[in-house]
Simulated scan of single mutants.
Amino acid sequence: MTINDLLNNKIMTIDSHQHFWIFDEERDSWITPEMGVIRKNFLPENLKPVLKANGVNGCVAVQASSTDSETEFLLQLAEANDIVKGVVGWVDLFSADLYDKLEKYSQFEKLKGFRHVAQGQPEGFLLQPDFIKGVGQLVAFDFTYDILIHQNQLKEAFNFAVKLPNVHFVLDHIAKPLIKNGQMQPWADDIRALAELPNVSCKVSGMVTEADWQNWEKADFRPYLDVVFEAFGTERLMFGSDWPVCLVAAEYEGAKGILTDYLSMFSDSEAKRVMGQNAVDFYNLDI
């Protein structure tokens, strides 16, 4: 499937995962010197022509820093830019006044859910009673939760999601498997286990940055795509570019092309779901 196919078939294409920031070296210390191409500002005016060139109708902006001001920043951008169809913000899920904060946030129509950067956290982070209690409160306001973890945290994520069957979860970046090393296990078995939970979806995103940045080939990703498509099916997968982070390893078109090429084996209706409709449904986007 090519960009022209998407355009000609009038497929609603939604990028379910991208970021905006005004670069701050101290705050954004995770953007290391070797990631020099993204050590600068990235705003809607930078993304808009990229989406247009790639036949993408809109996007979901996801938090990149863990502050209340980050959520406010993204909401302001969403209000001013129609390409931003939804926002996944940050809120202190351990806060004693979390319910009141969520009630305040519920007035913002484009705020769809929240995320905490759980990747790299100590073992057991997701299973803390106060964290589970906080995430459980999202249900009252129809907010979703994005699970950002490394592949070695998948078993913990399973136990976490089991405890919260009414929360709508989406796994970011297929849990960052070790694509550069070609390692499949235990990631593959753990993905299959997590996918057995009906309240968990998965973003096909962030793969190029887990591969060899300079020397990846599309074939490197096929075994991982085989696993997530078998596990989640086309009903619970959604396209995400992880722009601008993807730029350290691929241009937007290249990152997106990995998935659109793979989807050429599927029906148009299945491709439509993965490339847009699943994101619209999961985040309840107003298109």
Rank of each mutant, 00 (worst) to 15 (best):
P44Y: 10
L111S: 00
H17E: 13
K101D: 05
L102S: 00
L6S: 07
F20K: 00
V167H: 06
A219Q: 13
M207L: 11
R39W: 06
D142T: 10
Q185H: 11
R192H: 11
E123F: 09
V117G: 11
L51C: 10
F23S: 10
R273K: 15
P33E: 09
T260L: 07
A78G: 04
K10F: 14
G113K: 00
H173K: 12
V135E: 07
D189V: 04
G257T: 11
G113V: 06
H17L: 13
F282S: 04
L74I: 06
D146T: 06
F20M: 06
M184Q: 12
L75E: 01
L98P: 04
G254E: 01
N181L: 15
P198I: 08
A157V: 08
S66L: 11
W21H: 01
L126I: 14
Y283A: 03
A157L: 05
P129V: 06
N81H: 14
V200K: 05
H116K: 10
E196Q: 14
P244K: 01
I22S: 00
V162A: 14
V208N: 03
N152C: 14
F169G: 02
G55N: 13
G206W: 00
E45W: 12
D68P: 00
G86F: 01
L51W: 04
A140C: 14
S269N: 15
L93H: 04
G136H: 10
R115I: 08
D92H: 13
V117H: 14
K272H: 09
F282R: 00
I191S: 04
D220H: 11
W21I: 02
D5K: 08
D172V: 02
A61P: 03
A64K: 01
L154E: 01
E25L: 02
G136P: 06
L263D: 01
G254W: 04
V170M: 07
L75F: 03
